[in-house]
Simulated scan of single mutants.
Amino acid sequence: MRADFNMAVSAHRAAVSEFHNCWARRIFAILGAAALCACSAMKLGYQQGDHLAYWWIDNYVDVTTAQEPLTREAIARFFAWHRKAQLPEIATLLQQAKAEVRQPVTPATVEHFQDASQQLARKSFEQAMPDLADLLLTLTPEQIGRMEKKFGEGNAKYRKKFLNPNPAEREEARYDKVMEYARLVYGNFSSDQEKAIRARIGPVVQNAEARYAERVARQQEWLKMVRYVQATQPPKAQVIDVLHRFREYWQNPPARLAASHEASDNAGIALTVAIANMTTPQQKAHAQDRFQKWIDDTHALMRDKANAPVRAAAAN
């Protein structure tokens, strides 16, 4: 999943990630990097989300001693809010997905869940903006340079995996990613089903360059904004306004990127629909069981009070 430096990303990284390639990834966009998975390890990841988020931010900017309390408190506030405000909405969407998964899937079905995930991402980013503004006002040129370097490293890995000069290897990498999420939801696929999915992967692979260009453009827009804040030190309210504009940028790309963005999205929706509608009754039953486990995990996380920093923030 692509990474833009913001406080919301630790809980909603997938919501601003590269466009989703299958039904499972569409659903996971509402869950975040560690929110929901049937395995206990991912549930534990959400329970330790404040530590993971701090580690991620520190990796990108090398948090200073002076910045650490501000950063940890902001993360704790975010997770306290997310647990209370967004996990119930996630549980509702998962219930809807469980009910829909046995029915024929249409593009409108996929778009519904995509729109819902984007709405959650908007709310999440909005919630994080005041604390994020405080953090941005403390960044140094060296920290911004480190952030840019990390973007470059991530882009190099992305190019190596998904933009391989060998067309066959490029297709294989995307196919493997699609099947990873498809199997997570539906279980195993027959060889005939796998061949049918592979035959439909072409439009997704063809849009890889455009998705990468959009990724880089968004990162550059972020770096331009962060450097502006560092250089001018505007009032906090103005920083929040700039963050609002950035949010609109990545959710509504400029005209020069809009056509490729729409083409990528349509290709992903078509592939998602094709995979869902080729599944057998047994695979659909597997998906329903999987969704129920995620629902149970979500409810457990809503009740969970084990995370001390989150509990302390919620009490304030």
Rank of each mutant, 00 (worst) to 15 (best):
residue 164 N to E: 07
residue 64 T to G: 08
residue 161 K to Y: 02
residue 122 R to I: 15
residue 153 E to M: 13
residue 303 R to N: 12
residue 91 A to H: 02
residue 164 N to Y: 06
residue 76 A to D: 06
residue 107 P to L: 07
residue 113 F to W: 04
residue 276 A to T: 06
residue 307 N to G: 02
residue 116 A to F: 03
residue 198 R to A: 12
residue 199 A to R: 09
residue 248 E to L: 07
residue 118 Q to H: 09
residue 50 D to S: 15
residue 247 R to E: 15
residue 311 R to F: 02
residue 104 P to K: 02
residue 304 D to S: 01
residue 156 A to Y: 02
residue 18 E to V: 13
residue 153 E to R: 12
residue 293 K to M: 13
residue 103 Q to I: 01
residue 236 K to I: 10
residue 94 L to F: 11
residue 236 K to Y: 04
residue 196 A to L: 10
residue 73 E to I: 07
residue 1 M to N: 11
residue 165 P to T: 14
residue 84 K to I: 01
residue 27 I to F: 12
residue 116 A to W: 04
residue 164 N to G: 06
residue 86 Q to P: 00
residue 290 R to V: 00
residue 6 N to C: 10
residue 39 C to H: 13
residue 79 F to W: 13
residue 36 L to N: 08
residue 113 F to Y: 13
residue 45 G to T: 13
residue 228 Y to L: 15
residue 228 Y to M: 11
residue 116 A to Q: 14
residue 27 I to C: 08
residue 127 Q to F: 14
residue 180 E to T: 10
residue 137 L to F: 00
residue 25 R to S: 11
residue 193 Q to A: 11
residue 181 Y to E: 11
residue 136 L to Y: 15
residue 56 W to P: 00
residue 21 N to I: 15
residue 2 R to C: 03
residue 287 A to M: 04
residue 8 A to C: 07
residue 158 Y to W: 14
residue 284 K to F: 00
residue 233 Q to E: 07
residue 299 H to C: 03
residue 200 R to V: 07
residue 290 R to W: 05
residue 272 T to I: 09
residue 233 Q to H: 14
residue 159 R to H: 08
residue 80 A to R: 02
residue 144 I to E: 00
residue 214 E to A: 14
residue 22 C to F: 03
residue 94 L to Q: 09
residue 181 Y to P: 00
residue 248 E to R: 08
residue 54 Y to P: 04
residue 141 P to N: 05
residue 281 P to A: 09
residue 260 S to C: 01
residue 201 I to D: 10
residue 240 I to Y: 02
